[in-house]
Every structure is written in structure tokens, then in C-alpha cells.
Design a protein around this nucleic acid. Structure first.
Lengths: 331, 331
DNA sequence: TGAATCTGTGAAATCGATTACAAATGTAAA
DNA sequence: TTTACATTTGTAATCGATTTCACAGATTCA
């Protein structure tokens, strides 16, 4: 069933059918109704591929996730979908597994006009590659930012968030604070390490690089790093981790060696994963406004779709430090 | 940069360029090289939309997930991607949020030839709708099966898995066993409830519908259900849950009222989520062969893509009961 | 009434590829 | 040197839509 068939059945030209489909003004009421009638009877749906080819547009936004194992992205996606559908855009999801080869493959969809824009939750590309692409296509970054890339982005102030978390540790009496970071999500990890560092220094506490351990994002790895922290000559009494999964690993280890979390040792994670509310102890964490991160990303990418040369906005959304059992509270 | 430009630059016809691109035999070595040279110099990539329109094929498989909040699907997707790329198929992911309106929207991609086949991790459609679609397009189900639908599927034997878990409880001395199920994933939930029931009956223990509680999949809801179980006149001494998240909720509640899990009360979950290895206590669970579920799904859908009228295979993969601290062990 | 303007419609070009078919060339056999 | 046949190549149709442009008929204005 193609537009030709409809035209034939309705006794009009394909142009008229197309006009009816696209709500073009200037089709006589009588003909319009006849066509609509035929469309209804035949359950005709215009072919997307044909349309996209002709229009060089797909009304689709591609969302690029680094992984599917992190439920963190679920709510962001909901925000994205909501706002996108308000603007009559559809969503497709692709998963890069942190591989630039895969990321590049999906980005070709832009060139092919299979997607009008991209929301990237994490990019493996270098700034130069991103800048090249962003000059030609609408790409925005969400949650992570690539240093030196000039694209719109939306995220929280990671440095400030880590600063506040660290300050909180300090205000409740901690003098030695460790950090479990990573080396996957460059931009946020660096910013959080920086916030941690500045909080220590602003409080007149010594900053020692050796108190930062890099893990992969597996809890087992955090357990290992936590062991190393405890094995130091002067072990810390509090640990900031760049993700809740890492916080869980750290806590797991601490419990296994009889250290009471929230008393002997405090832990703060990142992202407010749902498990933080049910782990034992419940876990203090920095919450990101996930839904809003999603909706704002869409606003940004649509702005770029409509006019590629608009200035690249960088938007910072507010975070929140949520305190639970894994921190002891003010001293 | 289109095929026409390449043809012009190489001084040949578009047909020849197309032949070179598609590795057709019967292009003289000299011309072929000339064309390849131009293609390399210009970084030309054939336009997917044009090609898809002409070929009525996309070499894409659509993976439909019910949600992004369950990391369970991550490894399945990896299996899917691996096997698909071996067969030169690409993958697109869509998220239905358990809404049939959204699911139907994405299924239109089949009609539009934007995807050659679908792997559905969970369908909200009724058997009749699925049968209609499956008559026209390659659709396979993975992990969940819709009763009455005649499509290929791959999953574990959910009934048997629950049967074995329940039998394990019984063999370690439990006489009253509760279950926390749900009402989202009809087919697996029903099968697991049935397995639970049969295990009780085969062991001469009374089966009481009242020992099965339906939760949504939030841990908080499992806490509530667990409270109800404990409040029963004759509370169970073991609980089987249809997901690890629910197991966590149950355990959380048990700990909060001072019941020692793995001693006073045993718990088994489903899916072997990574958190089960780090929760306190670690959680016994039924593991599904996620990677293989993915690869086999692809095999099935490609078989259907190549020949829609092949018989609909149903494939059962082996599961495994993994015992950890949340179960006390043999009596 | 005739010219000017508006409306509504359809024919045909177009998007970027593939492919059926025809035509041109080359090669081998008679 | 033909003829027959295989090998290469190109022309044009095609996939399913949108859109430009021309034209016919209706309407307005002088």
C-alpha cells in the first residue's frame, strides 16, 4: 500500500494525497475528505524511508549510551522521551560500550539523515573529532563533557558536588578522607577529584594524591581499592566514591573487616541509585536531576537542529547531597 | 557526496559505482580500482536511506526492551550485538516502558523496512496482535513468552527453575515457604508460581495461594509484601522472589525487624544481578545464561528474516541455582 | 467584458541508491 | 573473416514519498 495506491483509489493525484497527509492548506474539503476516507479504510501509513529520503530528515533523535548496565540512565531517557515526543521527535537508543569504533558507526546515522540529532551520554571521541562533527550535525552532551569540545552540554557541577560532599565530611570531624574514583568518565571524574582536592585545601587539610584510587566500576574493584585505603599507614576515616556501585563495594569491604560504616568510617557515593535506599546501611549520595537532564538535553539538541549555528549553551543543573546511614552526621 | 558524484569523478556510470560498492563480480579490475580510489579520496559512504528504500531491507535488528532500569538486559544485548555483527546486522534499541502504544509505534519500523526483524524482551501485545505481526515480519521473543502466540522464543525453563529453588528450600528443612511475585512479566511470573506450587505439592506440603504476594518491581514494594508474609498467622521460613530486586527488598525488611537472613529465614531471588554478590548477605539466586539468550535470539530472528515461513522454534536454555549467604544450606 | 488575481490540482522532477535490460566490446570457434 | 558467446558497461526504471511548476477554472476589480 503506497501513496500511489491511495491516489488511485481516491481518484486524485499523488500530490494531493501527499498534501492531505501533510496537512497542507489548499486542498478542497471534498477531496480532502475523500482521501482521508480512503486512508482510513486502507490503514495506509506513509513510508518513512521514502519520506526521509526526500525530506532529508527523520524526526528522530539518537541517544547514545555508553552501557546498559547502569540504571542511572533510565530516568534520563524518560525525560528525553517525554520532551522529544512533545516536539514530535522519536527516540532511538544505541549502546557504544565505551568503544569509539561503535560510536562512530552510530554517528553515521546523522550523515545518512537517519537521525536529526544526537544526545550523547558519554563520548569516547576526542575533542577534535567532536568539533568536526558538531560543525556539521547537532550533537549535545549530557552528564559528561569532553574538554576542548565546543558543543552544547547539560550536567551538574561535578566539582562543586564533590566539594560539598568533602566539606560535609570535614564538617563532621574527618581529617583524613580518601576517594575512590575511576578512569572511564574522564570529565566528571576529574571534576570530582578536583572538588575533593579543593575542599581539603580550603579547609587547611593536606591533599595527598595517594588517597585517590582509581577503580573500574565494578564493586569488586572498589573493595580492592578500599582495602588499599585501609592498608595505608594513616588510613582515612571517610571515603568519597564517584559512583554508588563503588560506594557499595567499599562498604562491603569495610563490613567484611569489621569496620562499622557510618560510625568508624563514613562513605558517600554518587548518583542516588535506587539501591542506595535499600542497602544496609543506606548510602549517602549526590543526587543528579536525571529527568531534567533528559528534558534539557532535548531542548538543546532541537535548538541545534533548527539552527546549527546557534551558540553552544552549557547548562548546569542543581545537584543535591542526600544524607543517609553511611555518614555519621555532624560531629 | 552521492553515488552520482563518484561516478562523475571516476568517469563511469552510477551502475558501475554501485557494482563496486556491492562487490559485484564483473567489473574490470582497472575500473574497479579507479572507483575505489575515488571513493577513498572522497570518503564517500553510500547513503543508507536511499539504499534501504531501493532494497526494502535495512540490515538492522530492533531490540525492544521494556525498561532501561534493569541491568539484566545489558549482557543479553551484548550477546545480541556480538552475534548480529557476525552476520553483518546492526542493532537498534527501543524502550517500551511496558506501554503497548509505544511498542506498536516501534513495530512500525518493520513495516517501513527500517528494521528487518525484532527481538522482543517483553511484549505488551496480546497473542492475536503478535500472531498477526509474526505472520508478516520476523519477530522473536527472548526471556518472556506470550501464551498463545506462535513465534520463535528463547528462555529458561522458568517453572523448573522455581521448582528447583523451592525444592531446595524444602530439602533444607523448610515447611512453609512464601513467594513474592509480580504482575508485570506475565509469562515468567506465572511459570515460576507454578513451579513453586508443584514443588510444594510434590513434596506433600500444602499449597496456599495466600502465600504468594504480588509486588511491583520496586524494593519498597517487596518490603511491604515481606511484612505481610511475616504478619501471617503462620509465617513462612523461606521466601522465593521472582527478581533480585525483590529479594533485596525482602531481606531489607527482614533485617529491619531483626530476622536473620540465612538463618531464621532464607531468601532466593532471580537473575543473578551483580548486586547479589555484594549485598549483605550475599543473595542466592537463579542465574540465566544471559549472553547466550542474546546470541540465540539473533540466530532465531535471522532464520526468520531469511525465510519467514520456517517453523517457530522454542528454545530452552539451562539456568543455574546459585547458593549464597541468604540460604542456610542443607539441613 | 476583459484583465488580473487566487485556488486547487496534477504532471514531473527529485532524494540516493539498486538492478533489469540493452548495448558495446572482446574472445574463441568455425 | 564471420559467427557465436561471454564479458563489461551504461541507460533508464524503480523504490515511496515531497515539492516545484504550470495550468485550468473561479473570483475580483476596473
Amino acid at each position: 500500500m503506497t501513496i500511489k495506491d491511495i491516489a488511485k483509489l481516491a481518484g486524485v493525484s499523488v500530490a494531493t494525497v501527499s498534501r492531505v497527509i501533510n496537512d497542507d492548506a489548499g486542498v478542497a474539503e471534498k477531496l480532502r475528505n475523500r482521501v482521508l476516507q480512503v486512508i482510513k479504510e486502507t490503514n495506509y501509513i506513509p513510508n518513512t524511508v521514502g519520506r526521509n529520503l526526500r525530506k532529508s530528515k527523520s524526526d528522530m533523535i539518537l541517544v547514545m549510551l555508553p552501557t546498559l548496565s547502569n540504571p542511572f540512565y533510565a530516568k534520563i531517557l524518560k525525560g528525553i522521551e517525554k520532551r522529544a515526543s512533545e516536539h514530535d521527535y522519536g527516540i532511538l537508543v544505541s549502546v557504544t560500550h565505551h568503544e569509539s569504533r561503535i560510536e562512530k558507526k552510530y554517528l553515521k546515522m546523522l550523515q545518512m539523515k537517519q537521525a536529526d540529532g544526537v544526545i550523547s551520554l558519554f563520548s569516547t571521541l576526542i575533542a577534535e573529532e567532536l568539533n568536526d562533527l558538531a560543525g556539521k550535525y547537532p550533537i549535545v552532551q549530557c552528564c559528561e563533557y569532553t574538554e576542548g569540545a565546543h558543543l552544547p552540554y547539560v550536567m551538574i557541577d561535578n566539582k562543586k558536588a564533590a566539594y560539598e560532599a568533602t566539606k560535609y565530611f570535614i564538617s563532621s570531624g574527618h581529617k583524613r578522607i580518601g576517594m575512590i574514583s575511576g578512569s572511564f568518565y574522564e570529565s566528571s571524574e576529574r571534576a570530582r577529584e578536583q572538588g575533593y582536592k579543593e575542599a581539603l585545601m580550603d579547609s587547611g587539610l593536606p591533599f595527598d594524591e595517594g588517597y585517590i584510587f582509581k577503580s573500574n566500576y565494578k564493586p569488586e574493584s572498589a573493595m580492592e581499592m578500599c582495602r588499599k585505603l585501609l592498608d595505608m599507614p594513616e588510613p582515612p576515616t571517610a571515603v568519597l566514591t564517584v559512583s554508588d556501585t563503588l560506594a557499595i563495594g567499599a562498604i562491603k569491604y569495610l563490613k567484611s573487616v569489621g569496620v562499622e560504616v557510618g560510625k568508624d568510617m563514613d562513605v558517600i557515593g554518587f548518583d542516588n541509585a535506587s539501591i542506595t535506599r535499600v542497602y544496609d546501611p543506606t548510602i549517602s549520595t549526590v543526587s543528579q536531576p536525571r529527568y531534567d537532564l533528559g528534558t534539557v538535553s532535548v531542548d538543546l539538541v532541537i535548538e541545534k537542529i533548527n539552527n546549527l549555528s546557534t551558540v553552544n549553551k552549557g547548562i548546569i543543573l542543581p545537584h543535591e547531597l542526600i544524607l543517609r546511614e553511611s555518614t555519621r552526621g555532624e560531629a
